[in-house]
């Protein structure tokens, strides 16, 4: 099982190419409103994350994922299962 603390830096690394110049990423960064990702980019980010951790994030769970931390906790949960 991969703990959240090990998941977080991998998420930040995956998200880095999607940030605007000089934009800082943190646990509380909001994926849509702060990063300004459109629906296409959200899909791209998720695909990268899913492949990186070899998981599939159910569509049902997406409404609860707002921040980087939410995403990390979701990944941790999926890896646990």
């Amino acid at each position: 099982m991969t703990p959240y603390v090990e998941i977080l830096p991998q998420i930040l690394e995956t998200l880095q190419p999607f940030t605007k110049e000089g934009q800082a990423l943190a646990e509380e960064t909001e994926l849509v409103s702060e990063l300004g990702l459109d629906s296409m980019q959200v899909m791209q980010v998720l695909l990268k994350i899913e492949d990186r951790f070899d998981i599939s994030i159910p569509l049902n769970n997406l409404p609860t994922i707002r921040t980087v931390k939410d995403l990390g906790l979701e990944i941790e949960q999926l890896l646990k299962n």
Binding site: L47, S56, I57, P58, L59, N60
Partner: peptide, 21 residues
């Protein structure tokens, strides 16, 4: 049900997600 999407018309992505299940 739990809903998982695969990339449009992408057989290998579909297969990958079945394997993960």
């Amino acid at each position: 049900a739990e809903i998982i999407r695969f990339k449009h018309n992408d057989v290998s992505d579909m297969e990958k997600r079945l394997r993960r299940l």
